[in-house]
Design a binder for these strands. Sequence first.
DNA 1: GGAGATGTTTCAAG
DNA 2: GCTTGAAACATCTC
Length: 285
Amino acid sequence: MPELAEVERMRREWDPGLGGRVREVFLHAEKRIFRGIEPGDLAAALTGRSLRSSEAHGKQMMFRFSGPRSSSSCYLGVHLGMTGALRVEAKNYAPERHDHLVLRQSTRSLVLSDPRLFGRVTFGDGTPPEFWRLRPPAVTDPEFTMPRVEEFLGRHRGAPIKALLLDQSMFPGIGNWMADEILWRAEIHPRRAGGELEEAEVRRVWKETRFVAREALRRIAERGVDPPKSWLFPHRWEDGGRCPRTGAGLVRETIGGRTTCWSPGRQPELGPTSVRRRVLAPPRR
DNA sequence: GGAGATGTTTCAAG
DNA sequence: GCTTGAAACATCTC
């Protein structure tokens, strides 16, 4: 499910619980989503505290709980992995197999489920976990600048641009479909190497990253609708899917370890300079 | 039955 | 030490 806009939407699922005290915590302590933390400590810290606020950043969410025993807050971090979901159920809801964390309030239960268990729960008492304090600028933030992207692509000059867009330390919240959408809009082949892109191309990647993130937030998080037919998104998994701009058949192949979809012709395998060189000095044979 | 799925982490090789 | 790519993680669906 979750890339930045879906995560932002999911974060709001627990909004009905804002201000409500957690009376009881139920969890599947042995499950993989609790790796690296003590589930018992988490349950003890949350019990009696109230949900105060929440925030999403990239694919991460942070829920803050406080009082009444102490003035200090405690923090519940949630990463949804591939199949995680948040929802609200009745106060006496009986957790099912994949419901690994349930916070019971007086009139409802806040539920985290994750069948595939690629998600992760983190926890901080007093201060948020370190990864949250060290989080990189959001792609919608003014600090997400063109020079930062240029420097990053230069540092990973050998890796395909598709793989680089999935790197959460530079592009927090960008996932598989958004990366393909960005490259399709920027007219760049997903296998082009980071260091091979010309300045104008890097600029397009930077610009379209911000555009796709902002539009996805507006449509998916705010209004709950999928991207329109004019985007690559609704065509990328279709059998015989066609490029909404050129009408050409879309191509799918694994790049950077993930199934990647692009529009041949619109996203040429050779960059502008290579093409120009070829025209000026065609290889002899 | 098999392949593959909006994701990260880990490990080994270059 | 850094970069890169492949495998592993666990379950469900087409």
